[in-house]
């Protein structure tokens, strides 16, 4: 069922013809926060209540997009006079480059990547321009956790606009077993807009998305992530498609990219992606858990919960060596009983 929905979502298949199925399809899109993407594909061909629902989603996504563009403008403004050119990651990049992957996409925050050497300067510039450490992670332990173990600064929230920014200096945590060569990707980045910001090239965008989805997280938004991969893949020209796996190998991200190609090939029926995978398939044993989890997440309900069980330990395992993981979980559980944050109930993430 879900696979059919995914294909309808990107316009590879028509909308479900029966009323009840169409209602179920829209409900599915709503649950997965992809109504905006559905709107970009289907609003023009819709009428009546369906058109209303899609228009509503388009307007909401338009707001996110405006917010994102403006945040980019503000980041460039904050860094004016320095020669730091942050790379926009994920949604920010898709919007800056007007990619299909960015259309109708819901966003809650903006991610940028800067060389580690510039990290302090970037943080200082942002703080001077009105960003503040996010309350929910302002505690000493969280600060230490982010700074020492992770691949980003603790999130900053702008005091007036209340938007969040994640400043990364690498693409996977320092402690993760997968170490992507972010330096290579950073130096291949290209200017966006007026040149004060940058974006990755198309291949690196796909690679980063694959890393983010399969090697760094709990896969919380499966439909959204998979649709993103599909569009990013479609955005590659022939030469890029052919070179994709080589580039992935070069930057040390081959296995997530192979997972991603598997997803695009299997779920969206892309022959091109299937051909690229060719004989270089991952050993079934390594591939199986992730793929089961993807399938489970897509099915929702009990399957999704099962997938969570598979994925939650995995997401941590991907990020930290075992000893450190034990320490972190211990600290986390202790924090449940002994919170560091002194300010109660303030709006924060999670």
């Amino acid at each position: 069922m879900s696979r059919a929905f995914l294909r309808s979502a990107v316009g590879l298949a028509p909308l479900p013809p029966r009323g009840a199925d169409l209602v179920a399809f829209i409900a599915w899109g709503r649950r997965h926060h992809i109504l905006g993407q559905l709107a970009t594909v289907w609003e023009q061909e819709s009428a009546g209540k369906l058109a209303d629902v899609l228009a509503n989603a388009r307007i909401f996504a338009g707001h996110d997009r405006r917010m994102l563009s403006y945040e980019m403008n503000r980041i460039a403004r904050a860094l004016m006079g320095t020669d730091i050119r942050p790379v926009l990651l994920k949604g920010g990049a898709y919007v800056a480059k007007a990619l299909t992957a960015g259309e109708g996409r819901r966003v809650s925050d903006i991610d940028i990547l800067v060389p580690e050497a510039d990290l302090k300067a970037v943080e200082a510039a942002l703080l001077a321009a009105g960003w503040k450490p996010e309350v929910s992670t302002a505690g000493a332990y969280d600060q230490h956790y982010y700074r020492d173990w992770m691949h980003e600064l603790p999130p900053l929230r702008h005091a007036r606009r209340r938007t969040l920014i994640d400043v990364h200096h690498r693409l996977t945590p320092r402690t993760a077993c997968l170490q992507v060569d972010h330096g290579a990707m950073l130096s291949a980045a290209r200017p966006a807009g007026d040149g004060s910001l940058q974006v990755f090239g198309p291949m690196d965008r796909f690679i980063h998305s694959a890393v983010h989805i399969f090697a760094d997280g709990t896969f919380d938004t499966p439909a959204r992530s998979l649709i993103e991969l599909y569009y990013l893949f479609a955005d590659l020209d022939d030469a890029d498609q052919v070179s994709l796996r080589d580039r992935a190998r070069e930057v040390g991200a081959l296995w997530p990219v192979d997972h991603a190609l598997w997803a695009v090939a299997t779920l969206f029926g892309s022959r091109r992606a299937a051909a690229l995978r060719g004989k270089n398939r991952l050993s079934r044993l390594r591939a199986l858990p992730v793929r089961l989890a993807v399938a489970g997440k897509l099915r929702e309900g009990a399957w999704a919960r099962l997938a969570d069980v598979l994925l939650y330990p995995r997401s941590h395992w991907l990020r930290m060596p075992v000893g450190m993981l034990v320490k972190h979980l211990l600290q986390k559980s202790r924090r449940m009983i002994s919170p560091k944050s002194a300010v109660a109930g303030l709006p924060g993430r999670e």
């Binding site: 006079g81 510039a125 001077a128 321009a129 009105g130």
Partner: peptide, 11 residues
């Protein structure tokens, strides 16, 4: 209050 640095020479 300004959203970033400023310089007397910037216009």
């Amino acid at each position: 209050m300004p959203a970033g640095p400023n310089s007397d020479t910037w216009r």
